[in-house]
Design a protein around this nucleic acid. Structure first.
Lengths: 134, 134
DNA sequence: CTAGGTGCAAATTTTTTGCACATGC
DNA sequence: GCATGTGCAAAAAATTTGCACCTAG
């Protein structure tokens, strides 16, 4: 009785791949992951479906990291940590996403704009990268 | 007696253009802005110099917005507001950049990483875009 | 003379798109 | 049969790079 999607087999597989990992993949990664299982898949289809998911509100972009757009199917707002060396992206618990109540209104006044959302990103070195730092 | 840079004329002009605007320009914008005044300038030189500034710590990237990397010569950490429609980028006063003291440590533990910095971005509609919304 | 900076164009990289064909209802 | 989805390859768009030249010291 819940949202049964009516996806094509490929669309379903792409969504499944995206939502079953926490690495916040690029289109390329999703394609590589799937092409063994779906030999007929094309990279253009992955790009097209990722766009579809964004429009449907099933996925969002984390931004272009090291030249590739990275995606997330977890729609609950939460911060990310990005390693500046290996570009790994990790989730930060949503409890750290809080911007004080008063801030939206103040920023709206400062910028003469309507604020709809915000994002917080932490940058640094992940453990394995810091172990191999000079 | 202060930091007198030793930039070439073109590098100086590129830095001057970047640091004299608050629109957080792309390489293309800087190039268009300068090419009247410096007819010999090439876009590759703008790209190269923007990279140089990043390495020197004189500029930083705000990210790839609508397909183009956007730059900022204001190095004091501060949030940005980005209009989802026209991609205008505005500064938010640095007072709003504060993440509570305890958070860095907690996120480091959560992510098993070293946090070096963070960024906060607000998204929404700027005044002129919201006036023309459907 | 040397090192660094630049123009130019080609190359690279990522993403988008046009079109013909396939598939499900 | 129609609307939607897809493969394929070409196109588009942004950025990087190789190379020859040029200019300041």
């Amino acid at each position: 009785m819940h949202s049964k999607r009516n996806f094509s087999a490929k669309r379903e597989a792409i969504y499944e791949t995206l939502s079953s990992t926490n690495i916040h993949p690029s289109a390329e990664w999703v394609y590589e992951k799937l092409k063994t299982e779906l030999p007929g898949l094309s990279l253009g289809t992955v790009y097209r479906n990722l766009s579809v998911f964004k429009e449907m509100g099933l996925a969002k972009s984390i931004g272009v990291i090291n030249g590739q757009e990275r995606f997330d199917a977890v729609m609950t707002p939460h911060p990310h940590f990005i390693c500046r060396k290996c570009y790994r992206i990790m989730d930060v618990p949503k409890g750290y996403n809080i911007i004080e109540r008063s801030v939206y209104g103040n920023v709206e006044r400062e910028c003469d704009a309507t604020i709809e959302m915000h994002s917080i990103t932490f940058y640094g070195l992940c453990r394995s990268c810091s172990e191999e730092e000079p």
